[in-house]
């Protein structure tokens, strides 16, 4: 699997490169700027891109802009955004196009190599990965009114879905059968008014509803 990395910190760039090549990934390019990143995406046609949110010149959210620009050129490019800190609004922005293939994780998560690689593969396959800290903060807040219709169990399922877990992992975590998770997920889609013909992107839309629900 071909990977392009956009990370301006040399230590982290090398660390990520080492980790990924050890795990059998092909690191096609590791770049530091938005322009180089876009060029690398164009040239190497990677299967996934890892992007640091803070890139030169202003070190604010150039990474997000790079992702938007890259996905304008290649709408199906899977992207995993890495950051020193997480904000729900960024997660919502990344997922906003509803196409999936997007991840947003704290850099800390890289150190749990297996989980990190799993999240990468999930994103590369068109799924999502949202940092558990974002979800934990959402759960701690007062629940928004239009999620009122969901039962507590359905909310648990939705929270795990938002982190990007599949039905089978959710079933494992909640110690129930995959069949009952499947039923919960259908109920969540129905209660959030998501049409059944939306395919796998319904999951992304449900997550977006969850993430964006308290924006005023």
């Amino acid at each position: 699997m071909r990977v392009v990395i956009a990370e301006d910190n040399v230590l982290l760039q090398e660390g990520l490169g080492l980790l990924l090549s050890t795990a059998g990934f092909d690191v096609a390019a590791a770049v530091e700027t938005v322009d180089d990143f876009l060029a690398a995406v164009d040239q190497h046609r990677p299967d996934i891109a890892l992007v640091d949110i803070r890139l030169p010149p202003t070190y604010s959210d150039e990474g997000l802009r790079a992702v938007r620009a890259a996905r304008r050129i290649r709408p199906d490019l899977p992207v995993l955004v890495l950051s020193q800190y997480v904000e729900r609004s960024y997660a919502a922005e990344l997922l906003a196009d509803g196409r999936g293939g997007v991840g947003y994780l704290l850099k800390d998560r890289i150190s749990r190599v297996d989980d990190f690689l799993e999240a990468m593969l999930r994103v590369a396959a068109g799924g999502t990965a949202v940092d558990p800290l974002v979800i934990a903060r959402l759960v701690a807040e007062r629940q928004p009114s239009h999620l009122d219709g969901l039962s507590p169990r359905e909310r648990d399922v939705l929270a795990l879905m938002a982190e990007g877990h599949t039905n089978s992992t959710i079933a494992g975590r909640l110690h129930v059968t995959e069949r009952s998770i499947h039923k919960h997920v259908s109920n969540i889609f129905a209660k959030l008014g998501l049409p059944p013909d939306n395919g796998s992107h319904r999951r992304v839309t449900a997550v977006l509803t969850y993430l964006g629900s308290r924006r005023t």
Partner: peptide, 24 residues
């Protein structure tokens, strides 16, 4: 960090969204 990245308005909106009370 969000103040540095996005400015005061966005940072305050995030604060409001994270409050357990309804904040307009």
């Amino acid at each position: 960090p969000i103040l540095a990245d996005r400015g005061l308005a966005e940072a305050v909106r995030t604060l409001a969204a994270e409050s357990p009370l309804m904040v307009h």
